[in-house]
Design a protein around this nucleic acid. Structure first.
Lengths: 206, 206
DNA sequence: TTCATTAGGGTACGCAACGTACCTTAAGGC
DNA sequence: GCCTTAAGGTACGTTGCGTACCCTAATGAA
């Protein structure tokens, strides 16, 4: 990491893409350290070894910078799990999501989501990243379950497929900041997700 | 409403509970007009015909005042619907919740939820109001459905009962600020909620 | 009734952070 | 080797939180 904490001492003056990257890295680091609340333009400027002026030439306001910086962090490595059983796969996906939302990154995302409420454009950008990543994994897992005969084909409806994820999100938002305990995840899978799929299979897999 | 917009002109000086109520009313009005973002201590003070000092003697910070003011607004009138059918009741509950979350009041609640993230005490207070009110209605509706034989007794598990509500919340949060369109509510009920209950009834009500 | 105590009113302040203005200075293309 | 363009530096205006200080009205007790 170049110029991590201290102000940059290099003699040359960066421009264009290089500078932009430096700003984004600085902003992303601030996000991880202090969350969106702690992301201030002055601090990002100092950390990146530049000044607010330069930042405002690229992003119109703090929220936009926050979203852009988050993008850097959110390149999630999502290989859907394959335990050979639907229940195991679902639990694993839920545990990963739980981890994600609980991590500093999740906190950042929550902060951003609430801060961006007024600007729909930024909101759309966030959803594109946060939302899409989620559903893909669930559909993949369900595809395999359908192939195995553990779930009916109708289960591949996106809303049905991601029910467990939605419940987890709801749990975290409703219950507060800390992560959901594992037995809640198990409950979601056993009491809701699997019965739901069973309910879709009208009279089969009994 | 006494002293609605203009600064109070009365000669007597209010104290204690009367003053506290005046402050809370002013804060609640500001919340409805401008949301939590627009709730500033100076404006509340002016509107209540008092000063910040007096407010800070009662609430330690803006968030606490916001939560207290929200309590005034959130006395929801919740008689669970009774259309005679589970599907109709569920849809009606969902529509009400959708209305609520979309209303200025919902916006306020969302703002508060995100602002209070750091202070667990306040968060607990909010949940007490927002959360409990919701589940009661669903349990009541399910009770009647069970009595009618339209749902299995296991459906009265709180997590199962409120699945539709959780999905709606998730939809609103994920998709952004505006209200969920009605077909989404129908989809939640028909594609998730009813199949889920069906799935719980292992081999009955077929 | 008088008077001390207590709570409210008015105002100004310190501080942080956003966003902007203005000028100076280096980079890089022609 | 100049000239446009972009970056650096700095200071400013503004808003809003939270605090400090001192004045003044209400209340209850002597």
């Amino acid at each position: 990491m170049a110029g991590d904490g201290a102000e940059r001492t290099g003699a040359t003056r960066r421009r264009g893409a290089a500078l932009e990257q430096a700003i984004l890295r600085a902003a992303a680091d601030e996000l991880l350290e202090s969350g969106y609340t702690g992301l201030t333009m002055d601090r990002v400027a100092r950390r990146a070894g530049t000044n607010k002026n330069t930042i405002y030439r690229r992003w119109p306001n703090r929220a936009a910078l926050g979203v852009a910086a988050y993008r850097q962090l959110a390149v999630a490595d999502l290989k859907p799990p394959d335990t050979g059983e639907l229940r195991g796969d679902a639990l694993e996906l839920l545990r990963r999501a739980n981890c994600h939302w609980t991590s500093p990154l999740g906190e950042v995302l929550r902060g951003l989501l609430s801060a961006v409420g007024e600007e729909p454009e930024l909101l759309a950008q966030l959803q594109e990243q946060a939302g899409a990543a989620g559903t893909a994994g669930w559909l993949a897992v369900l595809d395999r379950a359908v192939a195995r005969g553990q779930a009916p084909p109708e289960a591949r409806h996106p809303r049905v497929a991601t029910v467990a994820l939605a419940l987890l999100r709801n749990e975290i938002i409703t219950r507060g900041v800390s992560s959901a305990p594992d037995d809640v995840l198990v409950e979601i899978v056993d009491e809701v997700y699997l019965p739901l799929l069973r309910g879709h299979a009208h009279t089969e897999t009994a």
